[in-house]
Amino acid sequence: MTPGVRILSTILLLALGSIAAFVARALSVPLPFMLGPLIVVGALISTRAARIVPQGYRFPQPLREAFIAMIGLMIGAQVVPELFADLPNLLISFGALTAFTLIALAGNYTLFRRVGGYDRATAFFAGAPGGLYESIALGEAAGADLPRLMTQQFLRIVVVVSVLPIGMSLYLGAPVGSSAGVSMASAPVPWNALPWLALAGFVGWVLGRALRLPAPQLTGPLMVAAALNLAGLVHLDVPPWLVNLAQVVIGTALGLRFAGIGHRMLLRGAALALASVAGMLALAAAIALLLRPLMGVNFDTLLISFAPGGVTEMGLIALSLAADPAFVAMHHILRILITVVAIGALGPRLR
C-alpha cells in the first residue's frame, strides 16, 4: 500500500468518525465523540457492510499514540493542589476507593472468567472499574482479546451513564445530568498554550518509555501534567476541542479493531455488562452508606462519586444535585489513578 493511499484512507476514516461524533452528540449518546466513531466504524468493519479501507490498511500508530497522550494530559491536568485541601476526608476516600477498586476488579474478573469464559488477561482488564483508555492500552500490551475487552469496557460506560442518570431522575422526580441541560463548559484555552501541551506530551511519552511505565504514551504524559500542576510550575489546560478531537481519533482507530465481532458477542457482552455494573453500583451504594456519617457528605453525592462511569456525566449529575462537581471529579480521578496502578502492577502477571 502506497503512503498516499494510507494517508487518504486515514483522512476519510477520520471524516466519517467526525460526522458520526456530531450525530451521536445530537442524539445525546454518552461519550459521543468517542462512541460515535467507534460504533459507526466498528459496525461497518464488523459487518463488512462496506469496504471503507483498502486491504491491509492499519491506522497510523504514531497518530493514535499522540492523541492518547492528549488524554493523559487531560487527566493529569485535573490533579491540582486544591484536590488535597481536605486531607482527612481525602484519606478516607482514598482508602474506600482502593477497597472499591480491588473488590470490583476481583468480582468482575470472576464474572468474566467463570461466566463469560474469557481468558485471564481479557477477564482482568475487561473488569477494570475505570480507566477506559488505560485498560484498553494495558490489555492490548498483555495480550488480551481486544474486541472483547473493548466491548466490555465501552458497555460498562454506556450502562452506567445511561442507567444511573435515569435512576437518579426517577428517584428525585426531575431530570439530572446532561438531560437536564447542565454544562461543564470551561473557559477557552489560548492558542499559545498548545506548544506547551505538545512539549509536555512528548516529554511524558519519552519518560514513560524510559521508565518502562505501563501504556507509556498515556501514563507518562499523565504523570508530567500532574507533577507540573502540583509543583505550581505550569497549569496545563487541554482545550475541549482538542479532547473531542482526540476522542474522535481514538474512537475511529478502535473501531477498526472490531473486525469479527458479531451480534451474538455483543448480546453476550451486554448481559455481562449489566451484571457487572449492577454489582459495582451495589458496592458503591454500600460504601456510600458507610462513608456518609464519617465524611458528612450526603448519600447521593457519594454514590455518584463512586459510580464507575464517566467523569463528565457524573459531574453533570453533581451540578444537577447542587453538589460540588470538584468533589465528585476528585473521586473519579482518584479511582482512575488507583485502577491504573492496580492493573499496571497486576496485569503483566496475566500475560
Results as ranks from 00 to 15, higher is better:
3 P>S: 13
7 I>E: 11
10 T>C: 10
10 T>R: 11
12 L>D: 07
19 I>P: 07
20 A>K: 01
25 R>Q: 14
25 R>V: 05
26 A>D: 13
31 L>Y: 02
32 P>G: 07
37 P>Q: 09
45 I>L: 10
48 R>P: 12
50 A>H: 03
55 Q>C: 08
57 Y>N: 14
57 Y>G: 14
57 Y>Q: 15
58 R>W: 05
63 L>I: 11
63 L>N: 07
64 R>T: 12
67 F>S: 12
72 G>S: 10
73 L>R: 10
74 M>E: 13
77 A>M: 13
79 V>L: 14
80 V>I: 14
83 L>F: 08
85 A>D: 15
86 D>F: 03
88 P>I: 06
90 L>C: 11
92 I>C: 13
96 A>V: 03
97 L>D: 08
97 L>N: 11
101 T>Q: 10
102 L>Q: 02
103 I>D: 01
103 I>E: 03
106 A>F: 00
108 N>M: 08
117 G>M: 00
120 R>P: 06
138 L>W: 04
138 L>G: 11
138 L>Y: 05
143 G>R: 05
146 L>G: 04
154 F>G: 06
157 I>L: 15
157 I>T: 07
157 I>V: 14
159 V>R: 03
162 S>M: 08
162 S>D: 05
163 V>H: 03
166 I>T: 00
167 G>K: 00
172 L>P: 09
179 S>V: 07
185 A>L: 14
185 A>H: 08
186 S>K: 13
201 G>I: 02
202 F>H: 06
205 W>C: 12
205 W>A: 15
205 W>R: 15
208 G>Y: 02
209 R>G: 07
209 R>F: 00
210 A>D: 10
215 A>R: 04
218 L>F: 10
220 G>Y: 00
224 V>Q: 10
224 V>N: 05
233 L>C: 13
239 P>Q: 05
240 P>S: 13
240 P>R: 12
241 W>F: 08
241 W>C: 11
242 L>S: 06
244 N>A: 14
244 N>V: 04
245 L>H: 01
245 L>V: 07
245 L>S: 09
248 V>I: 14
252 T>G: 13
257 R>L: 04
258 F>V: 00
263 H>Y: 01
266 L>R: 00
267 L>S: 12
274 L>E: 03
283 L>E: 05
285 A>N: 07
290 L>P: 09
293 P>D: 11
294 L>I: 12
296 G>K: 08
306 F>W: 07
306 F>M: 15
308 P>S: 06
308 P>N: 04
308 P>K: 03
311 V>L: 13
311 V>Y: 01
313 E>Y: 01
322 A>D: 15
328 V>N: 06
337 L>E: 06
338 I>C: 07
348 P>M: 10
349 R>H: 11
351 R>E: 14
